[in-house]
């Protein structure tokens, strides 16, 4: 078994004196889609902030074999830890193309054109709309634009916060299918989701988080049959 791309062990993090994450362990292997699920307030977004080094955290945080803990937030980004933030956070009065270019803002390599091609292949709709203002698009198109912008940063790991939030189920299904395409391009995905059903439909492995602690983890095939997970998140219909 190869070394995990992202390796977190015993992480504690919070806001000032208020602890949010307790002894958290998480790993993402190359080529994996990993889901981190949990309800509101479980600490999912805090986890992403801690990984991105925006808030301080104790414990092991290794990415691609390198210790990220002593590095500033920019370093996490330039090493390929790229986030699609909750609520898309687009630049509303800029065109789709300009939004995508902002994703590549720090890149000086020759690969930007290739990334454009990659994004437009994954999201043909963005190519159609590339001259439109991002703020005038539908929620689903905005989410595509936010994901495209993140891909323009040439990520080694794509972290997506609440991808399904406020989107129609049919749009969520389309986006989930695209996650598989992104994985096929060699980019692993850490999907942080409230919609457990959606997350399980695409992820290989998942972690279930409650009040800042990981309470269950394992392959999705196992978790789907775990009675406590079914009762708490998947409901009787499943």
């Amino acid at each position: 078994m190869s070394e995990p791309l992202l390796n977190i062990q015993g992480m504690n993090a919070g806001y000032g004196p208020v602890p949010v994450l307790f002894d958290l362990t998480l790993s993402v292997m190359p080529g994996e889609i990993v889901a981190m699920v949990g309800s509101n307030g479980a600490g999912k977004t805090t986890l992403l902030r801690a990984i991105s080094r925006i808030i301080p955290a104790q414990g092991t945080l290794r990415f691609n074999g390198e210790d990220l803990a002593p590095l500033p937030p920019e370093a996490a980004f330039t090493r390929g830890l790229v986030q699609v933030p909750e609520g898309r956070q687009l630049f509303p009065r800029m065109t789709v193309e300009e939004n995508l270019l902002m994703g590549a803002h720090l890149r000086r390599d020759k690969g930007v054109e290739a990334s454009f091609e990659q994004v437009y292949t994954l999201f043909p709709k963005l190519k159609e709309r590339r001259r439109q203002l991002a703020g005038n698009m539908s929620g689903g198109e905005q989410q595509m634009c936010a994901m495209g912008r993140a891909l323009m940063a040439n990520p080694k790991l794509l972290m997506i916060d609440e991808m399904s939030l406020g989107l129609a189920p049919v749009i969520v299904d389309q986006l989930l299918a695209i996650l598989n395409d992104i994985r096929a391009e060699g980019i692993p995905v850490l999907l942080v989701e409230q919609d457990v059903f959606a997350a399980f439909s695409v992820a290989d492995r998942a972690y279930v988080m409650e009040t800042g602690r990981v309470v269950r983890e394992g392959p999705v095939s196992e978790l789907q049959n775990d009675q406590s997970v079914i009762d708490a998140y998947l409901g009787a219909a499943h």
Partner: peptide, 10 residues
Amino acid sequence: QNLTAARLYG
């Protein structure tokens, strides 16, 4: 337009 996102992208 969006300080948070601009910071996020470097």
